[in-house]
Structures are given as structure tokens and as C-alpha cells.
């Protein structure tokens, strides 16, 4: 029983990162209507800039800040491509563009960061964490979950209680109508891309020491991110938060069972499948009637 609890708690750290990534995916989708396949690959760029700088001997804090900035700039660059060259395109075209860019970024990232050789990522949080019911909850888990909760609350508050939030919602619903009202549509959209790039960089810096931290593996964390976002139908920040944490916990639990451990990476795919089937239930029941 205790090993189950320990494993579930161990999954919280990954869960917190999945939650941050899921909230970022929802954030981008809700505000600029793009399913951002590049989300984690762009965050991986920021995370790897951080690790390369620490390897070169720079102090941790400036390396983290530069990594976040580079992640934001990389995301901004992809945002510019979609908002300038594909502004009038459908959601599916924009999603396809980000999927194509994901492949390019992974290929280039692996080439530039030493292929599939894992790098030694520093623990950017440090500290021992806390003991709860005999189980240690690491500081990284607490920070990841705390940051995910903060992002969720901040996103909701900004969208519902500020003028910029109103303008962002206008942008997401009717970009042309928003532009005709003098809302700085392009500037806001680029801001959304930059913010999501910065947030995913932070998430990957938190989760990298716990994973196999090569560029490709970190980039493919887009799968649990999408699974978390899907639980919230790509709309609800809170559901993405809870979904991300749950996926992490289920992954952690799976590690206890010998037969399941090597398949735990499949958990997000199963979650996606279950959520899609669940979302179709209404149509199937209607058809059955």
C-alpha cells in the first residue's frame, strides 16, 4: 500500500509539469485557435539553452532566465509564422503547420544537442521537499503543482477580470471583428505565443531531471500535454490542471506493477482514447435510440 502511495506521489512532479503544459495548450488554443503541436518542442529549446549555459559554467538563475526568454522567443517566431503567413487559414491548416514545424524542430534540436544522449539537467528547485504520511513530496513536485495552479488561476482571472482579458477573448472568438474595433490583434496574439513559450520552458526545466532528458523525449511530452488539455475539451483550464496531475499520478502508479511499468508512457494515449470515446457517447446513444 505504501509503495502505491509513494509511486502516486512520485508521479505528482510529472503531473504538475503535465498540468502546466496542458494549461499552456488550452491557453494557446482558446486565445489564438491553434492546436500547438510545437508547444513542448519550443519549451525544450528554452530548457536546453538553460542546460547548455550551466554546462558552460554560467550560474543557474541567469541560465534559467535566458532559457525562459529563448523559449518565449522561439514560440514567438512560430507565432509570427502562423499569424502572418497563415492568418486566414483554417484551424486544421494551422495545426498541420505546427505539426510540420514540430518534426523540423525535433530533428534540428537532436542534431544540435547531441542526439539521444541525455544531458545532466540541474534541479532548478532544490530543497528536500516535505514528508506527508511517510511519503516524501519533492520540492520539484510542489513547485510544479503550485505553478500549474497559479497559471490556471491567473489565466482565468486575466481573461475574466481585465480589459486585456476581454480583448484576448474577443480575439479568440472573432479576430476580424476584434481588429475592426481597434484591438491590437497581432500584438496580443504574439504575446499569447510568447507567454506560452515561456511557461512551457519552465515546465520542461522542472520535469527534465525526472525524465530521459534528450531533446526528442522532452518534445514528445506534447502527448501528455494534449491528453490533459483534452480532458478539459481544450477549453477548461481547471480540467486541464486536474487532468495533467491525474495523468502524472496514474503514470506513477503504473511504475509499481512490473508488467505495466514499461508501458506507462502509453498512459496519455489511453487517456486520449478514453476521453474521445467518452465525448462521443452522446452521439452513440442518440443513434442507438
Amino acid at each position: 500500500m505504501n509503495s502505491l502511495l509513494t509511486s502516486a506521489v512520485a508521479g505528482l512532479s510529472a503531473g504538475g509539469a503535465y498540468a502546466i503544459l496542458g494549461v499552456c495548450v488550452v491557453f494557446t488554443y482558446r486565445l489564438v485557435s491553434v492546436v500547438k503541436f510545437t508547444a513542448t518542442a519550443l519549451g525544450a529549446i528554452g530548457a536546453f539553452v538553460m542546460v547548455i549555459m550551466t554546462e558552460m559554467g554560467y550560474p543557474l538563475l541567469p541560465s534559467v532566465l535566458v532559457g525562459i526568454l529563448v523559449g518565449a522567443l522561439a514560440s514567438t517566431a512560430v507565432g509570427l509564422i502562423t499569424t502572418i503567413w497563415f492568418s486566414g487559414s483554417s484551424q486544421s491548416i494551422k495545426a498541420a503547420v505546427t505539426a510540420a514545424l514540430l518534426v523540423c524542430i525535433i530533428a534540428m534540436g537532436q542534431r544540435l544537442t547531441g542526439g539521444q544522449q541525455p544531458r545532466a539537467f540541474p534541479d532548478i528547485v532544490g530543497g528536500a521537499g516535505i514528508q506527508l504520511a511517510g511519503v516524501t513530496i519533492t520540492a520539484a513536485s510542489l513547485v510544479a503543482i503550485g505553478f500549474a495552479v497559479f497559471l490556471t488561476v491567473a489565466a482565468e482571472q486575466v481573461l475574466n477580470r481585465t480589459r486585456m482579458g476581454l480583448q484576448l477573448r474577443a480575439l479568440s472568438e472573432r479576430p476580424m471583428a476584434a481588429e475592426l474595433l481597434g484591438i491590437p490583434v497581432r500584438r496580443l496574439a504574439i504575446g499569447v505565443w510568447a507567454a506560452s513559450g515561456a511557461m512551457t520552458s519552465i515546465a520542461l526545466m522542472l520535469v527534465a531531471p525526472l525524465r530521459s532528458p534528450d531533446f526528442g523525449s522532452l518534445s514528445l511530452l506534447v502527448v501528455p500535454a494534449f491528453a490533459a488539455a483534452l480532458i478539459g475539451s481544450f477549453k477548461s483550464f481547471r480540467a486541464a490542471l486536474v487532468g495533467g496531475i491525474l495523468i502524472g499520478v496514474i503514470e506513477g502508479l503504473a511504475s509499481v506493477f512490473v508488467g505495466l511499468n514499461q508501458y506507462r508512457a502509453a498512459v496519455p494515449f489511453l487517456v486520449i482514447l478514453v476521453v474521445l470515446l467518452w465525448s462521443q457517447r452522446g452521439a452513440q446513444w442518440d443513434e442507438a435510440r
Partner: peptide, 21 residues
Amino acid sequence: AGKRALAGIAHVEQGRTIFGS
């Protein structure tokens, strides 16, 4: 279009383009 709006040209498009949410 955005700068024309700020300069003083308002356009009420056909189709009642409210922000429904």
C-alpha cells in the same frame, strides 16, 4: 484595418458579430 478603426472608421459587419461568450 485596426489602425483605420483607431483613426475613426467603425464597421458594423453584417451577421451580428457579437462576442457570444
